[in-house]
């Protein structure tokens, strides 16, 4: 796993450096800003979805989903991040422990 770790790390650094080295008019356009702001929303939603209900190439409904549901309820109530993560994990562990879901 070393090559991908190093390649990804160096490329992400060069991406930051590009903003200092490239002529300003290349990157400083509203359309580029707009896409750059929306990309995290799209990709993070994709990862949350896949991590919550994906298992290889199949969709499964297991104990991760009630955990994530608790996470979203707590975030909507502006709960502290750490409390939210612990409560979500505990929900999943509990649902598994009592044998409701895998």
């Amino acid at each position: 796993m070393w090559p991908p770790v190093l390649i990804a790390s160096v490329l992400c650094y060069l991406e930051k450096l590009a903003g200092y080295l490239l002529p300003q008019r290349v990157l400083d356009r509203r359309s580029v800003h707009h896409v750059a702001a929306l990309l995290p929303v799209a990709l993070l939603t994709g990862i949350v979805t896949v991590q919550a209900v994906g298992s290889g190439q199949t969709l499964v409904l297991d104990a991760r989903v009630p955990g994530l549901a608790v996470a979203f309820v707590l975030m909507a109530r502006r709960t502290n991040f750490l409390v939210m993560v612990v409560a979500a994990s505990a929900t999943t562990a509990l649902v598994r422990h009592v044998g409701l879901m895998a």
């Binding site: 992400c12 991406e15 930051k16 702001a37």
Partner: peptide, 24 residues
């Protein structure tokens, strides 16, 4: 790995935007 790298890079585009602002 290639898709992991591409995802990381697309998420990092906004850092280049910040860099433009910070460089001045």
């Amino acid at each position: 790995p290639a898709t992991a790298i591409a995802t990381a890079l697309l998420l990092g585009v906004r850092n280049a935007m910040y860099a433009v602002r910070m460089s001045t």
